[in-house]
Design a protein around this nucleic acid. Structure first.
Lengths: 173, 173
DNA sequence: GGAGGTTCTGCAATTTATTCTCAATTATCC
DNA sequence: GGATAATTGAGAATAAATTGCAGAACCTCC
């Protein structure tokens, strides 16, 4: 039995005093049929609806994705594009993202230990987990080949980056 | 020897064809003297400079923090405030964030295994690590007590959240 | 240590993303 | 089916971030 039937979601909306509207149904439907690994911005979702002659106002889209994110139905992703993207929050396909800060290329990856660590942390503080996202900012091989950082010795980024974790360093001159 | 001396940073700028200017020095100085656990938005940084009679234009601030983030000197944080915050990227004090999506309360925590997992992933794909951030979206105990989610059975969020990872679930009706 | 060339800054205007306002509409509960 | 409260759409408003440009500042190289 799928986790996201329209009926079970309607029940969740109603239980909190919210309503299942045609607009919300359509938005959910789009995400449910989105190929794995895709995610949409509010703007992209809006354009998609327009094309299907199922126009939904941009404000409604913004309101809906925000609400569904807070409910845990969608995940709100902050990748490198400068605006938010959304995807279904599917426990069975929970994943994280690695982004090239040079070209914005994004790679999804799974890693169950991240969720385990998050659960541990959440429990420790008495919180209730909604979602957890590991975002890796990095430089992709292509960008490296294209000369990132162009005029620097090849080990530059290593010296700077957190990859070389050095203890006992204090921030002063 | 501290990681972030003005001289070593100047060398890093210059090596890439960038320049160490008084403005950038001042900005770095602010971050170097920021108490642990604090982070600033571009706007806050701007106000701070104004107060010290060291006015730096907002555009320069935006340009500088972006550049330094891409260099790996600063970390760009997307927490719950709706705008970006910045802090020094200090390997020795690398940490992650747990945010209450109800009240925006933020808790920092350390967890070395996150960095290890990130390094593993980065290596696998031939990327070069700049930074990695685990962001946990959760509901804090206070918000839970205040009745989140108000009209729902107390186990609601558990059914929905990724905490209960269920295999073999497909997104369809 | 100065010239030359390039980067950087500040200002103002602009873009982009998102939220708000409010009247009209509509889902839900009884 | 009707009352009630949530939701929608349209556009205005806000907030964050970016850009273009002219003048100033910095680095390199001799």
């Amino acid at each position: 039995m799928p986790l996201y039937t329209t009926n079970s979601l309607k029940a969740e909306f109603n239980a909190r005093g919210w309503r299942m509207t045609p607009q919300r149904k359509k938005i959910l439907h789009v995400f449910q049929n989105l190929p794995r690994g895709n995610h949409l911005s509010a703007e992209e979702l809006h354009d998609l609806m327009e094309k299907r002659q199922e126009g939904i106002s941009l404000s409604t889209i913004y309101r809906s994705v925000k609400l569904m994110s807070r409910m845990g139905i969608l995940r709100e992703l902050e990748l490198a594009e400068g605006h938010k993207h959304y995807e279904l929050n599917q426990p069975a396909h929970h994943h994280h993202h690695m982004v090239c800060i040079q070209c914005n290329k994004t790679i999804e990856f799974k890693n169950d230990s991240i969720l385990k660590q998050s659960l541990k942390q959440v429990e420790k503080e008495g919180f209730q987990l909604i979602d957890c996202q590991l975002t890796i900012m990095a430089i992709c091989p292509e960008a490296l080949r294209m000369g990132w950082p162009s005029t620097l010795p090849s080990n530059w980024s290593c010296t700077r980056s957190i990859a070389e974790k050095v203890e006992k360093q204090e921030p002063n001159e």
